[in-house]
Design a protein around this nucleic acid. Structure first.
Lengths: 217, 217
DNA sequence: AACGAGCCGTACCGTACGTTACGGTTCGGC
DNA sequence: GCCGAACCGTAACGTACGGTACGGCTCGTT
């Protein structure tokens, strides 16, 4: 179980300039990975190191702020569970799957996860918690209401929404994320992602779809 | 697609002493993560830094040797596809799932994956390739023959063994690996792993099992 | 017994980088 | 126009750590 992240609703006391600095840091993080230097960030952001330290305390603070800043920006689209028929449920699930695959295969997501994983071992694993909270747990929070709505509408059958979500998560992600994080070239074209989303959704429905009479085919 | 790792069958020119040194380095890697120092390894292994450099070239060489050494040791049990009935196929799948979960939730595996992910971004991502080759791809290589045998025996139905394997992989692993890598506490007891293995296997069979007549329930 | 290879322990060097300090510049408020 | 705050650019400091050098010990070989 993950501890609650201090404050999810960040992006509060961040001036435009600070956001620009964090964006520069993020771009650098994507390019250079964890081995970016404070000097490089300062140069890229056209600001002084003194400002960096005044605003973010130290290197870890800057990294944390950067990860939080980007993580809070990435929100997978939410879907309201009003249309309760099978078609709209299927569409919603495909949408979630597609969005999720697009997120985890993006350069920034890979970079963020990389640095979070790198820092997860040593003490203050704030980054890991942040990434997890804005990634996998945020997805769960958005998807579960849809699943519940599907169940209430008699379209899905499951006892534990968490378990159902995790299965969906596995069917969508499979080995993609770990392969990308480990540096495996694995280009996901728009078309491939779409196909995967449809496949994962169909498999999920085959496992958790309500059996309405004998299904042919 | 992953490039072929230079030589899979390592553990060739490694003396007992060298293996002991690598084991020490591995233990340190588990404890300290990527930020272990050559001095610490030398002290832990009771050897001189000079020896470390003579044997492994530089820090990266030591890390690579360590990862290769451990990765080559971890082999998920292989199963021969001789027993062709549903019971033995199910047992094999459950065995694979259980072994795999046990591997990816072990401290050493987490540490190895962490360091491999950390190094994946910057140039020589040898580590990522090694981990992937001895982990996810080794698993595939072992499991696919079983799947093929199951298909040949009329127990499974699929067109692409790779796709079938990836689905199995997703059903088994779900969000476990990324959560562990990101520092999420997620204790997998022996019992929980066993239950997950059974569940994943049942779900896989539900998706890829041959439809022999109308299945009730 | 002599000797040399291999290795341990330690001291040492060079450098990269985190962190701090400081002079110069811009800019809003009075 | 003047003042102080905030900030830029850069120089400087301290240190941790990768990598090297060297003296002494062990041990196998002759």
């Amino acid at each position: 179980m993950l501890h609650s992240v201090p404050d999810i609703d960040n992006s509060e006391a961040l001036t435009e300039r600070q956001q620009a600095v964090l964006d520069a840091a993020l771009r650098l993080l994507v390019e250079e990975g964890d081995n970016l230097t404070m000097t490089a960030v300062a140069r890229r952001a056209s600001c002084s190191k003194e400002t960096l330290y005044k605003w973010f305390g130290d290197r870890d603070g800057l990294l944390t702020a950067t990860v939080q800043w980007q993580a809070s920006k990435v929100r997978v689209a939410s879907v309201d569970g009003k249309g309760l028929d099978l078609a709209s449920l299927t569409a919603s699930l495909e949408r979630f799957a597609s969005d999720w695959l697009k997120v985890i295969s993006s350069d920034t997501s890979i970079a963020l996860n990389r640095v979070a994983v790198s820092h997860a071992g040593s003490g203050k694993d704030n980054l890991g918690a942040v990434v997890l909270e804005n990634g996998r747990f945020a997805l769960a929070k958005r998807l579960k209401p849809v699943l519940e709505a599907g169940r209430k509408a008699g379209l899905l059958e499951f006892t534990d929404a968490e378990a159902a979500f995790r299965t969906f998560f596995g069917l969508v992600g499979r080995d993609v994320q770990i392969r990308l994080l480990l540096g495996d070239r694995l280009e996901l074209t728009e078309a491939a992602i779409g196909g995967d989303a449809i496949r994962a959704t169909q498999q999920f429905l085959a496992l958790f779809g309500a059996k309405t009479g004998p299904q042919g085919l």
